[in-house]
Design a binder for these strands. Structure first.
Ligand code: MN
Ligand code: MN
Ligand code: MN
Ligand code: MN
Lengths: 247, 247
DNA sequence: ATCACCTGTTAGCCAAGACTAACAAAACCA
DNA sequence: TGGTTTTGTTAGTCTTGGCTAACAGGTGAT
């Protein structure tokens, strides 16, 4: 029983797998663990030896595998992180359950205690507070409805004119000559996204609109000393924070 | 220039580091990269060779290191994930900036495209929608104010009686005999948290209150066929969803 | 010109965590 | 009881990504 420095993600996943297996199938065999983790049985054996050395599992050659009390504690820590993160991805971000599980299981090992804690509180808050639930509904309607946010959000104040206007992310195509704006997001996929990011239009960058062609079919920008030229389509895909309107 | 299957997190981080270095210091030397990533220079050289083989950086022995266009594109993808996640942890979850950066830099490699996309939309939404911003303020006041959520949330409907009541997570200590409840969260740290998780009180579990000692100083529960007994303090630390009140 | 220092490279080592192929033990079946 | 199948272990290999120690190339000071 060697002292545990910090469990690697692989070992944490083995522990988690064993936990779920004994929970559901009553016993955990090498074979089950291998299948659950999509590895070969030959990879499981040495992992079991390591976990046994750490005092986290009871493991005798060719016998059923079981968690020690300490291993159980450790496994539960991992599982509860896994569940919380899954809930977040599934219920808040509305990711398909399989992807949500995958993302959760990848993140569960690296998230700081503080990050984890606040995330759990956030999930709880947004689920339990009726107002939070309402907001979440609006968000889901927006996100799920369509992928051009400047056109969506009918139920959300973001879609209304007036006070909300100044908080809204607007397409670069709507910006006037001379304004400096902050890039918020690139609303494009694939080749166009690549091209735009390639040109240095990263979220957080500040760009200035230098010139706009008649009919707004071409936009000349300046970013950090360099000029670049966008087509109208490209400019529509660059979402920016509108410039401050100080009279 | 070999075909890129999928970059490892280590290589993505090297790429990211180079990107930031050329962005800020104009040149990236092995020494700078080593310092930025907290590794020895001897570890950097082979990584550079691999990145060069993948066609992502320009690297001649003992020369300054630079990104190829393809490398730049790849690096920007990583950087923009890094930034989005950092924003989430910092601005939404209110994690200290250093921890936020750490969490973001660990997650940025594993999050699915869909997860990333929805998360970015969520951040945007909650920042741009005035109502979202208000809710976020309430959340921050709750989370930052204190760590016993059943006592906090004065400004939030969660703290008010009436309709909100039924959505609230309540301490197990407030539950009546015979009720079945869903464990939401363990509001305890250290040894007590361990003890409770140890006893199987994981979020998602269903427990039944079997018996309550006079003065509510001891709670007997049943979970999945097993009985367990909690002290009053312990029962107060177990936050549960209250049972449905169907008359 | 030479020496010292800084930087980067090489060689050689290690651990983790996967794999295949070969082998061994149990269980099952006839 | 003896053969067959299932299951698990072992041995040996590979890649990744670290490390230290030794070495090499360049730059500047004396
Ligand atoms: Mn995992
Ligand atoms: Mn997991
Ligand atoms: Mn990273
Ligand atoms: Mn990063």
């Amino acid at each position: 029983m060697i002292e545990a420095e910090r469990l690697s993600s692989a070992l944490e996943d083995y522990l988690e797998t064993i936990y779920e297996l004994v929970r559901h199938q009553k016993v955990a065999r090498v074979r089950d663990i291998a299948r659950a983790r999509s590895v070969r049985a030959a990879s499981v054996t040495p992992a079991m030896r390591r976990l046994a050395d750490l005092g986290l599992i009871r493991y005798e050659k060719r016998e059923y595998i079981d968690l020690t009390p300490q291993g159980q504690r450790e496994a539960q820590r991992v599982v509860s992180r896994h569940q919380a993160l899954t809930r977040f991805f599934k219920n808040v971000l509305k990711i398909p359950v399989k992807t949500a599980e995958g993302d959760a299981c990848a993140m569960e090992h690296s998230l700081s205690a503080e990050g984890m804690d606040h995330l759990v509180r956030f999930i709880e808050f947004v689920h339990n507070c009726p107002e939070g639930a309402r907001l979440l509904d609006v968000f889901h309607a927006c996100v799920l409805a369509q992928h051009q946010p400047e056109a969506s959000c009918q139920r959300c104040p973001m879609g209304q004119p007036g006070k909300a206007e100044e908080h809204r992310a607007v397409p670069l195509s709507a910006i006037d000559v001379g304004a400096q704006v902050l890039v918020r997001r690139i609303a494009a996929d694939g080749a166009m996204r690549d091209r735009l990011l390639d040109a240095g239009l990263l979220p957080g960058e500040i760009v200035e609109v230098v010139r706009v062609a008649p009919g707004r079919v071409r936009f000349d920008l300046r970013r950090g000393g360099f000029e670049l030229r966008l087509t109208g389509d490209e400019a529509r895909a660059v979402l920016v924070a509108p410039p401050e309107r100080n009279p």
